[in-house]
């Protein structure tokens, strides 16, 4: 078996695994009970799924120009996905979109007002 064939097989494996993870993330989005749980689905399996798809593409394309772009896509995904999830979670937190009956403990409830005030004070002068 030549090196090319092996690389193609690995690439195929990565692409399929990545696609399946993205599918699982989609299913999780529909099935999870509240917004915060759904953010988990969009932050984790989706990122790994995308990374696997990128690796698969890289192994299949095998040219420098394409691989550098794929590396950038992966890096930015890793850097931005948690921020996006955090922003959505923060916007949703004080609202009713969260199933508090499913929470074992909520240690943020006692602090949220102070943090919000701090942030407004910090943002005001600038």
């Amino acid at each position: 078996m030549s090196v090319d064939t092996v690389l193609d097989i690995v690439a195929a494996g990565c692409l399929i695994a990545g696609a399946l993870l993205c599918l699982a993330a989609g299913v999780a989005l529909v099935r999870f009970p509240d917004l915060l749980s759904r953010m988990h689905a969009s932050a984790k399996p989706q990122v790994l799924g995308l990374l696997l798809v990128l690796v698969g593409c890289g192994l299949r394309l095998r040219t420098g120009v394409d691989i550098t772009t794929l590396v950038l896509v992966g890096l930015f995904q890793l850097a931005t996905a948690p921020v996006a999830a955090h922003m959505v979670g923060r916007a949703a937190y004080p609202d009713e979109q969260i199933r508090t009956d499913l929470l074992l403990t909520d240690e943020l409830a006692a602090h949220i007002d102070r943090i919000t005030q701090d942030r407004q004070r910090g943002a005001a002068p600038t």
Partner: peptide
């Protein structure tokens, strides 16, 4: 950790009759 996390969420998503409980901790 990333692989474990993804597998865990995927498994949770596909499991029937189970509502995951969660917590907010400081």
């Amino acid at each position: 950790d990333l692989v474990v996390a993804s597998a865990e969420i995927a498994w949770l998503a596909l499991r029937f009759g189970h509502t995951p409980r969660s917590a907010i901790i400081a």
